[in-house]
Simulated scan of single mutants.
Amino acid sequence: MRRVLAVTGASGFCGAAVARAAVVAGWEVRCLGRRPGPVGRHVPWDAAQDAPRLDGADAVVHLAAAVGDPPPGRAAERAFRAVNVDGTARLLDALGGRPLVHVSSASVYAPAAGAPIPEEHPVEGQRTAYGRTKAAGEALALAAGAVVLRPRAVYGPGDPHLLPRLRSAVRGGVLLLPGPDTTLSLTAVENLAAACLAALCPTDTAHDNPTDAMTPRGPWPPGAYNIADARPYRRDDAIRRALGTSVRIVHVPVALATAAAAAAAHLSRNSLLTRYSVEQVAHGVVLDTTRAAAQGFHPTWDLEDFLRTEPVRDEV
Rank of each mutant, 00 (worst) to 15 (best):
L307G: 06
D159G: 04
P221F: 00
L149T: 00
A64K: 04
G173E: 13
R90S: 06
L92D: 07
R127K: 10
A115T: 12
D212A: 12
P118Y: 00
R53M: 03
L5H: 08
G223R: 11
P38T: 05
L287K: 10
V103G: 00
A16M: 02
H121V: 01
R240P: 02
R165V: 07
A261N: 11
T128V: 09
R81W: 13
A112F: 03
A110H: 07
P221C: 02
E138W: 07
A129W: 05
P99V: 04
A294W: 09
P71K: 14
H207T: 05
D93F: 00
V247Y: 13
S277R: 15
G97P: 01
A16F: 02
V67E: 11
Y155G: 01
H42S: 05
L142Y: 01
A135D: 03
P202Y: 08
A89F: 08
A143Q: 14
P222K: 14
P178V: 01
A188M: 05
R308Q: 14
P99C: 08
I227F: 05
A106R: 04
A25T: 04
W45T: 02
G15F: 02
T274Q: 11
H121A: 13
S11D: 11
W220L: 00
P71I: 07
V18W: 04
L192A: 10
G172L: 13
A263D: 07
Y225R: 08
S246F: 06
T128L: 03
G172K: 14
R34H: 04
V101I: 00
A21W: 03
L303Y: 05
R41E: 14
A89R: 15
G158S: 10
A228E: 10
D58H: 15
A57K: 04
P71T: 07
R313S: 09
G12A: 08
P164G: 03
A242N: 03
E138D: 13
R90T: 09
A264T: 04
V250T: 12
A282D: 03
P210S: 03
D58P: 13
D86Y: 10
V39I: 12
V247I: 11
A51D: 15
A292F: 02
L91V: 10
R165W: 11
L272Y: 11
E120L: 06
D302T: 07
D229W: 09
G137Y: 01
R30H: 13
V83P: 03
V147C: 04
A141V: 02
A260V: 01
L177N: 08
D181N: 15
A144I: 01
A25G: 09
D236L: 03
P311K: 01
T203S: 15
T309L: 14
T183S: 12
D236E: 14
G33E: 00
T128H: 13
L176C: 12
R269F: 03
P311L: 04
R275L: 14
L267M: 14
T8C: 05
G244D: 07
H207K: 02
A146W: 04
L243T: 10
A264Q: 13
S168H: 14
A263V: 14
G158Y: 12
